[in-house]
C-alpha cells in the first residue's frame, strides 16, 4: 500500500498537523516505505498466533472504587491560558 499526497493531507488534518505543501511528496514517499515494511511482515503466517494487545504478558491491575483525589482546580488552572468561573476557556468550537 502506498500513500499519495491526498492521503498525507488527510492524515495531517486528522492529527491537526500543519504540513508544508512542498514537504508532502517527501512524507508520502517515507510513509509509503514504512507501510511497505509492514506489508513485508504481513507475509508471515500468523494463523495460530493470538493477536497481542500489549508487549507485557501481564493482566491489568484494578483499583478499588474509592475517591482518592481532592480538588486541585486552582493549582491546575495556573497552567491554563484563560479561565473564567472555574471553566477553561478555549477558542470557540461549534459543531
Amino acid at each position: 500500500m502506498s500513500l499519495d499526497s491526498a492521503d498525507v493531507k488527510k492524515i495531517a488534518h486528522l492529527a491537526r498537523l500543519a504540513v508544508d505543501e512542498q514537504d508532502i511528496p517527501g512524507y508520502a514517499h517515507n510513509l509509503s516505505n514504512i507501510l511497505a515494511l509492514v506489508e513485508q511482515m504481513s507475509a508471515v503466517s500468523t494463523d495460530n498466533v493470538t493477536p497481542m494487545a500489549h508487549p507485557l504478558d501481564e493482566i491489568q491491575r484494578l483499583r478499588d472504587d474509592v475517591v482518592t483525589e481532592n480538588d486541585q482546580r486552582d493549582h491546575f488552572q495556573q497552567a491554563a491560558q484563560q479561565v473564567e468561573d472555574g471553566l477553561y476557556l478555549v477558542p470557540q468550537v461549534i459543531e
Partner: peptide, 9 residues
C-alpha cells in the same frame, strides 16, 4: 464567554 468556549472536565 466573549466568543470563547468554556470547558468543564
Amino acid at each position: 464567554f466573549h466568543g470563547m468556549t468554556g470547558i468543564d472536565l
